[in-house]
Simulated assay, not measured.
Amino acid sequence: MKLALVGDIGGTNARLALWHDQQLESVRVLATADYPGPEAAIRAYLDELGLPPGAVDSVCLACAGPVGGDLFRFTNNHWRISRTAFCRELQVRELLLVNDFTAMALGMTRLRDDETRVVCEGEAEAGRPCVVIGPGTGLGVGSLLALADGRWLALPGEGGHVDLPIGSPREAELWQQLYRQLGHVRAEDVLSGGGLLTLYQAICALDGHEPHLASPAEVTAAALAGDTVALAVIEQFCCWLGRAAGNNVLSLGARGGVYIVGGVVPRFAELFLASGFARCLRDKGCMSEYFDGIPVWLVTAEYPGLMGAGVALQQAFEHGQV
């Protein structure tokens, strides 16, 4: 493989790196708000490394949103990309676009032992799919399956936009409050960085608290400092994440395990590990025992989506797809 570039582009940040000898090199994180589009961000990145146009032969970008056709509009930022115009402007031979959670799922195949924490003990069943789910700017959901030829198949989807599950009378009351605020209530409306603040506001409105926190970061900081309302927000967040993850396990038959990813949960990892997540994951009535022995991990790796973009590009090269 000639010199290649990989990117993991979310709503807030664009993570870029060179892909060389199946490893990431020269990782940089750029704010999407600072650039009019991906071409400008990549030009700035290459300029910093002293690489001229045409130095990179192939590019794989993991993008938040459904990927298909020549024109792609990013879900959670102002960027858009035309494959044809991108290749012409940057003098790139091949551009591979993959869904961001396809890349995130593929990134799970390269995790080191020190890049995960065990949430639920268990043994992954060979030949069964895994669920990869993670709150970040939005809620990403993907799945991963090992193929017989040694490749990995990651199935993209838009599972963050499913309806928020309700599993208790308290959650039904919260859902009604959220519905009054939002109308249709998606899982992503709560299970995301911004969703922490939305959930905080809903709990304050329902329980008669005067809201004094104004950002997701403030909610997290207050919870870590012992604020009782903020702690209730984190607990409910974790419980709803468990219900959403459990729904995906049942839908996919995902006895290969569950990976909790994204930038939100690691910020309150100890609270998450002590929360009702595991209880709500398996709170499925007559199907609760299905979850016995299914392992769950919290992923703490710094750039799993970026690594997954490299894996996607590597597999495409090895099987003649680019």
Rank of each mutant, 00 (worst) to 15 (best):
L224H: 01
A40F: 09
N77R: 08
L306W: 02
A214C: 13
M287N: 04
W240A: 12
L97S: 01
V233L: 02
E218V: 05
Q181T: 10
A214Q: 11
S143T: 07
Y303W: 03
Q321D: 04
R267P: 00
L164M: 08
T228E: 10
Q314D: 13
G54S: 01
E123F: 11
W175K: 14
A245Y: 05
L106W: 12
G305R: 03
S215R: 00
A40V: 10
V118M: 06
M104R: 11
L97R: 00
R151S: 01
G150W: 10
A278Q: 00
T116R: 13
D57Y: 08
A187I: 13
F317I: 01
G150H: 03
A244S: 14
W297M: 14
P36W: 15
G194Y: 10
D283I: 01
V264P: 08
Q91C: 08
G262W: 06
E115V: 10
L153C: 11
V141E: 02
T228F: 12
V233A: 03
T137N: 14
L5S: 02
F268Y: 08
D114P: 00
A44K: 00
C238W: 08
E235V: 00
F268E: 08
E302V: 15
G208S: 05
Q321E: 14
G65T: 01
A187T: 03
N13L: 13
E121N: 11
I133M: 13
M1C: 06
F72K: 00
G193R: 07
M307I: 12
P66A: 11
P169V: 05
P169M: 01
T220R: 05
R73I: 13
M287Y: 11
L178K: 07
S251D: 13
Y45K: 00
P66L: 05
P52Q: 03
R112A: 12
I203E: 02
I294K: 06
F86E: 00
G160F: 04
F291R: 03
E270M: 11
E188C: 03
N77G: 09
S82K: 04
G263L: 01
Y303E: 12
E123Y: 07
Q321C: 06
V131E: 07
A222Y: 02
A244Q: 09
T12E: 04
A85R: 15
V311R: 13
I81K: 07
A244R: 11
D227A: 10
G256K: 13
A126Y: 07
W297T: 14
V56G: 00
S288K: 04
L155S: 06
R117C: 14
